[in-house]
């Protein structure tokens, strides 16, 4: 009986230590990680929005060829000495078969043709018409969003997640 109580007490004490240790590890690691990201941005002028966009476009491109776990996709910067590397880690579920790839490419080509014709129309209208361009950008973003759907990470900017919510409603 007394032994049990003692064991319990020991375990609690130990867990207390573990908890504080885990917390303390964060302060330093958080600092390192935040610094890496911020320095990357300082050095390359890559803003968080651009990174997010890059990620979105990569997902779009790659999903033509492979089926992947979009939620687990990671886009990070790695530093090895002076060299900066862009690390993309994609958990692949399966490679798509030829028919699927061809389908994807075909629909992509169609979309591109549509885009081009739209572009031409716009050019004819006016080159400096900003409102039209904005509208087009929004369209592109919306499309990308549907593709990624729920794999938005914490980094995703608020605008997009808000849009997402309104879509669901």
């Amino acid at each position: 009986m007394a032994e049990n109580i003692l064991k319990e007490l020991c375990n609690r004490l130990l867990s207390l230590f573990r908890q504080t240790e885990a917390k303390e590890e964060n302060a330093k690691e958080v600092a390192c990680n935040r610094l890496r990201v911020v320095l990357m941005q300082d050095r390359t002028n890559l803003t968080p929005e651009l990174l997010q966009r890059m990620r979105r476009e990569l997902v779009e491109l790659l999903s033509k060829y492979v089926e992947m776990d979009k939620e687990a996709l990671e886009l990070n910067f790695d530093q090895d000495g002076d060299q900066m590397a862009l690390m993309l880690s994609i958990p692949v579920i399966r490679a798509k078969d030829e028919a699927e790839i061809e389908d994807a490419l075909k629909s992509d080509e169609d979309a591109q043709e549509d885009d081009e014709s739209e572009d031409n129309d716009e050019d004819e209208d006016s080159e400096t018409d900003n409102s039209d361009e904005d509208a087009q950008e929004d369209e592109v973003e919306d499309e990308a969003e549907e593709e990624i759907s729920e794999d938005e990470t914490e980094k995703e900017d608020e605008n997009l997640s808000e849009d997402e919510n309104s879509d669901k409603e």
């Binding site: 302060a27 390192c32 000495g81």
Partner: peptide
């Protein structure tokens, strides 16, 4: 502070700044 992981270590800073 470095020992308790509350502060970046010398190695961390050297690695980050290379």
């Amino acid at each position: 502070l470095i020992k308790s992981n509350d502060m970046m270590s010398v190695e961390d800073v050297v690695e980050i700044l290379s």
